[in-house]
């Protein structure tokens, strides 16, 4: 556990994972989009608007999945003070926020023609909007302090408290009556979606997960570099910078090549 938390080990692992992540993402998204837009049938009730589901639902899953990941990393950074856990939490937040926002936007674009409204304040839609605000709050909070460690403490606390919202999002459609329909995939008795429509859904979900891995690695590398820059600047390097100096090979990045 602690071994993987070392940045050098992480960077080597990330370089090994990256080509696979790119390959899987491109492949699953290409096949998934073909199935979603061309090869899958229209719904017997909703016609072609059902195709919005193939991004709406995976985006919702990613929004929840990223949040749980962010909260776990936040807890690890609070308990064990792993710098990498904090960095991973910070790197996850914008990805999760993007997926959550996409879930809300595509849901709106689906709700207008089918339900007859862009938005209602029912339990599912409201709890999903709260999820987006939790992401935005976390990102604002971790950057609000001059001392990054204090920022990550406050952010981790918010991420952990907000994790209560995750089961609320998931079960809102069972606990309360809502305009949003009940769960279609993760439900008792198996999915209530025809197999021909499940394939594009799962492929795009895998593609989104691959995309998450790619951007997560990029953002962790970015954050590691920025911490090193901050450490160097604090030690007085760069204050008397004589302008432009030719960049040299940097051993710190040896494991971080693309």
């Amino acid at each position: 556990m602690h071994r993987f938390a070392k940045p050098s080990v992480f960077l080597r692992l990330a370089s090994a994972v990256m080509p696979w992540a790119v390959g899987i993402t491109v492949l699953t998204l290409a096949v998934g989009l073909y199935l979603a837009l061309v090869a899958s049938p229209a719904d017997y009730q909703q016609g072609d608007t059902v195709r919005i589901m193939y991004i709406h639902v995976p985006a919702a899953w990613m929004g929840l999945f990223c949040y749980v990941g962010m909260a776990i990393c936040g807890a690890m950074s609070l308990i064990w003070k792993h710098p990498l856990a904090d960095i991973a939490a910070r790197a996850t937040a914008p990805i999760g926020a993007t997926f959550t926002a996409l879930c809300l936007i595509t849901g709106s674009l689906w709700g207008e023609p089918m339900w007859g409204t862009w938005w209602v304040w029912d339990a599912r839609l409201t709890s999903m909007l709260i999820l987006l605000f939790l992401y935005l709050g976390y990102m604002a909070l971790v950057n609000a302090f001059d001392d990054p460690e204090r920022g990550s403490k406050a952010g981790s606390a918010l991420a952990l408290v907000g994790v209560i919202n995750v089961p609320i999002v998931k079960f809102s459609v069972d606990w309360w009556n809502t305009l949003h329909q009940p769960a279609s995939v993760a439900r008792m008795g198996g999915p209530s979606i025809d197999p021909s429509m499940l394939w594009p859904l799962f492929l795009i979900a895998i593609g989104f997960t691959g995309y998450y891995v790619i951007v997560l690695i990029l953002r962790i590398r970015l954050e590691l570099n920025e911490r090193r820059i901050r450490a160097l600047q604090l030690s007085g390097i760069g204050e008397d910078a004589p302008g432009s100096v030719q960049p040299v090979y940097n051993p710190e990045q040896a494991g971080a090549g693309e």
Binding site: P41, A42, D43, Y44, Q45, Q46, V50, M53, M114, W115, G116, T117, V120, L179, Q181, P182, A183, S184, R187, S192, I193, D194, S196, M197
Partner: peptide
């Protein structure tokens, strides 16, 4: 507003 169910099929 229309409320649809959780079933999707051709």
């Amino acid at each position: 507003l229309a409320k649809h169910d959780e079933n999707y099929m051709p």
